[in-house]
Design a protein around this nucleic acid. Structure first.
Lengths: 146, 146
DNA sequence: ACTTGACTCTATAGTGACTATAGAGATTTT
DNA sequence: AAAATCTCTATAGTCACTATAGAGTCAAGT
C-alpha cells in the first residue's frame, strides 16, 4: 500500500508542507519515490506521523518528539527516559499555567483602574501600565526555553 | 539629561539590541545622536520604554503595544479603545490557560499509563501517544493567532 | 492529441520577538 | 599609547511552521 503526500496529509490532519518539513528535520524518514519523483508512503510512515501529531497536540517541541522517536526506535532500552521526558514536559506546562494565571491577575487589576472617564489622558489603565515597579522580568518567561 | 543605550538598557531591564529593535519597529522614536553617532536618550524615552516593557511583561504583542502607544500619543481620544484592547487581551490569556489545563490533563493521563515496566516496548506512554483518536487539532492553537 | 485541473516538486522568504554574530568605530580607563 | 569597554550597522539564526514562485506529473474530459 503506497499513498502520496496529499493522502498522508488527510490521514494525519497535517498539511503537506508540514510533512515535507518534518522530513527535512529528520522526524520522518525519507520515503520511496515514484517514477515522477513523488513521495510514496506506507503504513509505518502514517503511524509515525500520527505519533508526531499527537505529541504536537500536547505541545511537545520537535526536539522532545525527536527524543521520544529515538527511544521508540530502540525498544530494548529502559522506559525511564520516556517517563522523565513526559514529567519534564508536564512541569513546563504547569509553570506556564501558573505564570499565565499571575499575569491574568495583573491584567484584571489593571482593568479595574479605568473608572469610565472620557479621555485617554485620564485613563487609569495607561497610567497603570506606565508605573513599572518591577524590572527583572516577572514570572513570565516564554522565550528560548527549550 | 542624556543617557546612552547601555544605561537605558539597565534602567529598563531590557537588552541593548532589543532597544534598537523597538526603534526599528517604530515603538521608540529615533533618538538624537552624539558626535560619534551614539544614540542619546532622555526622560521621555526612558518612560516610554518602561511602558513597553511593562506591557510585554503582561505578554501583550508588539502590535497591541503599538496600538496602546498610539492612544497614549493622542490623549484627547476616548478611553474606550484602551478598555477594549485590554479586555481582548485578558480573554486571550484566559483561553490560553484553559487550553493548557486541558493539555495538562491529557499529559497526566498519559503519565499514568507507564506501569513501571522495564522496556520501552512495553511502555504505555509511547503506546498512548501512538493512539491518536483526534485529528482536527484539539483546543490548543497557539500559532499565528494575532 | 490536447487541454484542463488537481496534485506534486524544489527553493526561498516570511512570521514574532527577539538573540547572536561579525567587523568596524567611539570612548574611557590604565 | 594601549587596552578595555561601549556603540555602530548589517546580517543570520531561533521555532514550527506558512506562503509564494515557478516548474513538473498525472488522470480525466474533449
Amino acid at each position: 500500500m503506497e499513498i502520496r503526500i496529499g493522502d498522508l496529509a488527510k490521514r494525519s490532519g497535517c498539511e503537506v508542507v508540514t510533512i515535507r518539513y518534518y522530513e527535512k528535520e529528520g522526524l520522518l524518514p525519507k520515503p520511496a519515490r515514484s517514477g515522477g519523483n513523488f513521495r510514496l508512503y506506507g503504513e509505518a510512515h502514517i503511524e509515525r506521523l500520527q505519533f508526531i501529531r499527537h505529541c504536537r497536540s500536547l505541545e511537545m517541541t520537535l526536539s522532545e518528539i525527536r527524543a521520544l522517536l529515538g527511544l521508540r526506535d530502540n525498544p530494548m532500552q529502559d522506559c525511564g527516559e520516556v517517563n522523565t521526558l513526559l514529567e519534564a514536559h508536564i512541569q513546563q506546562v504547569e509553570m506556564r499555567v501558573s505564570a499565565l494565571l499571575q499575569l491574568k491577575r495583573h491584567l484584571v487589576d489593571l482593568r479595574e483602574k479605568c473608572s469610565g472617564s472620557r479621555s485617554v489622558e485620564a485613563c487609569g489603565i495607561l497610567q497603570g501600565l506606565g508605573n513599572c515597579n518591577c524590572h527583572g522580568e516577572s514570572a513570565t518567561n516564554s522565550q528560548t526555553s527549550g
